[in-house]
Simulated assay, not measured.
Amino acid sequence: MWQAIVETVRDEFSDVPDVAELTRLTVRLLMALVLGAMIGYERERRGSAAGLRTHMLVSLGTAVFVLVPLQAGMKIEDLSRVIQGVISGIGFLGAGAVLKLDRSQQIRGLTTAAGIWATSAIGMTAGMGLEATAVFVTVLSIVVLDVLLRVEKALIRRGWSDAPRQPPER
């Protein structure tokens, strides 16, 4: 009887046949989650509509969308269709973050939408096993979101920019 139970459980979890595959899955998914959290934390600090949890879920979900087909043996040429679908779907999610304010006639949320899009790309990269690239893109994204925002604000304060004297989008 116990042998039947063990075989049933093994059959149900056959997508993870050994410790090496479990380690590979774990590293890729945790990498996507942590890198998404890094960008999400920066957005959360700035009071963005899409913060920590949103960016974590976008990165993790995108990693799963590329990891599962690879795990199932899908050829990289066929995976391009999955990637195209993910990119379109994330674009739709990002569009929901873009709001037009009636009084000032300014569009807000473009940076948030771009951050969601970049976070998805990071998750995709981690899910495909390109962890070093995913880390590098995360660092570059944080530089754009945090460091360049500080530089822009400093330039506006000193009058070195033609930008309007209102704070840049968070």
Rank of each mutant, 00 (worst) to 15 (best):
G85R: 04
G91R: 09
T125P: 05
S120Y: 05
S88T: 15
G91W: 09
V144C: 11
M128V: 09
L148I: 13
T26S: 15
I116N: 03
A126M: 08
L110R: 07
L149G: 00
V6K: 12
L93P: 06
M38G: 13
L57E: 04
F13K: 07
L67G: 09
G115H: 03
V151G: 06
A72S: 13
R28Y: 09
V68I: 15
K75W: 08
V16K: 02
G73A: 09
T133W: 10
E44P: 04
Q3D: 14
L60S: 07
V98M: 05
R157I: 03
R150P: 00
L99R: 01
W160K: 15
G61Y: 04
P168Y: 03
G115K: 01
G73C: 07
T138C: 01
S120Q: 04
H55K: 02
W160G: 04
D78S: 11
R10M: 12
A113S: 10
L99M: 13
E42I: 08
L25H: 15
K100S: 10
G94T: 08
V144Q: 05
V16N: 03
T138D: 06
A32C: 07
G40E: 02
A154P: 03
L149M: 10
F65Y: 09
D78E: 12
A37V: 03
E152A: 11
L149W: 08
D11C: 04
L145K: 02
L101Q: 14
R158M: 12
L30V: 13
A95R: 06
V19F: 15
I107L: 09
I39Q: 07
I142N: 09
Q166P: 00
D162Q: 11
Y41C: 00
A95Q: 08
G85K: 06
A154F: 11
P167V: 06
F13C: 09
V64L: 15
E131Q: 13
G109H: 02
E169P: 04
E77K: 10
L140Q: 07
I116M: 15
I87V: 15
S104A: 09
L25P: 00
W160I: 02
G40V: 04
R46D: 14
V82G: 06
G61M: 03
S141F: 03
T54A: 01
A134C: 03
G127K: 06
R150W: 11
G96I: 10
V9P: 06
V139T: 08
V135H: 03
S48Y: 01
V6A: 15
I76D: 14
A72H: 12
Q71M: 14
A163V: 07
P17N: 10
A97Y: 06
L29V: 14
G85E: 02
R10K: 15
L33M: 14
P17I: 07
V6H: 11
F136T: 14
L130G: 00
W160T: 00
A95V: 06
A118H: 00
T23K: 12
D102M: 06
V147T: 14
G47V: 07
I87M: 14
Q166H: 12
A32G: 03
L93Y: 02
G36W: 02
Y41D: 02
A154S: 12
F92N: 06
V137F: 08
G73T: 10
V19K: 10
I87G: 04
T26N: 09
T23G: 08
T62Q: 01
M38W: 08
